Amino acid sequence: MATAQIIFESYREPRKVARRFRDAGADEGTGLGWLFAACILFFVALLPSLARTSHLSNGDAPLFGLALGTFFGTLLLAPIFFYVVASMSHLVAKAFGGQGTPTDARLAMFWGLLASTPLVLFQGLVKAMIGAGLQANMVALASFAVFLWVWINSLIELEKAA
């Protein structure tokens, strides 16, 4: 099944998708691939807005500098942050009786990030076309809600006793 189909299926049934990944043998390498794919798409989503910022600044903020700083943040720092948060989510789940592994918690979070990328890409377009404002904030809220929905439901499913 294509990744896009699985992403949209996870909006409806995130626990079923998480269970299918676990049964198929998803491991740390799979999760790392999801994380970097999501981070690359987050970077791509930010590029149109950065171009708008550069254009409106009349060259005071060069696009290359903006893109380089964003690249550094999204592809070098963000994965470290997400690994830490996923590990903390495993500890929280364990405190509530979770029986999964740290890898399960990372898989849940990283799939949630990848599943939210279609809305993040849409948010990037909205922000680039009309600028920051209510519309961009609404799409950002929707993408964050999708991320939380998929992440929390996947975490609950993967932290259950196997």
Rank of each mutant, 00 (worst) to 15 (best):
L77V: 15
A78P: 01
P79Y: 08
I80Y: 01
F82R: 05
F82G: 00
V84L: 11
V84N: 10
V84H: 00
V84M: 02
A86W: 02
A86M: 10
A86T: 12
S87P: 05
S87V: 04
M88Y: 04
M88T: 13
H90F: 15
L91N: 03
V92M: 07
V92N: 00
A93C: 11
A93N: 10
K94T: 15
K94V: 15
A95P: 05
F96Y: 12
G97Y: 07
G97P: 14
G98S: 13
G98V: 09
G98N: 13
Q99H: 07
G100Y: 03
G100V: 07
G100R: 00
T101K: 03
P102E: 02
D104K: 01
A105M: 09
R106K: 08
R106E: 02
L107T: 14
A108P: 13
M109H: 09
M109I: 15
M109P: 05
M109Q: 11
F110Y: 09
W111H: 09
G112E: 04
L114T: 04
A115I: 14
A115F: 09
A115H: 03
S116V: 08
T117A: 11
P118I: 09
L119C: 10
V120L: 13
V120E: 07
L121K: 13
L121Y: 10
L121F: 15
F122K: 00
Q123N: 11
Q123S: 12
Q123A: 02
G124T: 10
K127R: 14
K127E: 13
K127W: 07
A128Y: 13
M129C: 12
M129T: 14
G131M: 08
G131H: 11
G131K: 13
G131E: 02
A132N: 15
A132R: 10
G133M: 08
A136W: 06
A136H: 04
A136E: 12
A136N: 10
A136S: 15
N137I: 15
V139K: 03
A140K: 07
A140R: 04
L141C: 10
L141Q: 10
L141V: 15
F144G: 11
V146A: 03
F147V: 01
F147Y: 04
F147D: 04
L148V: 15
L148K: 06
V150H: 02
W151G: 00
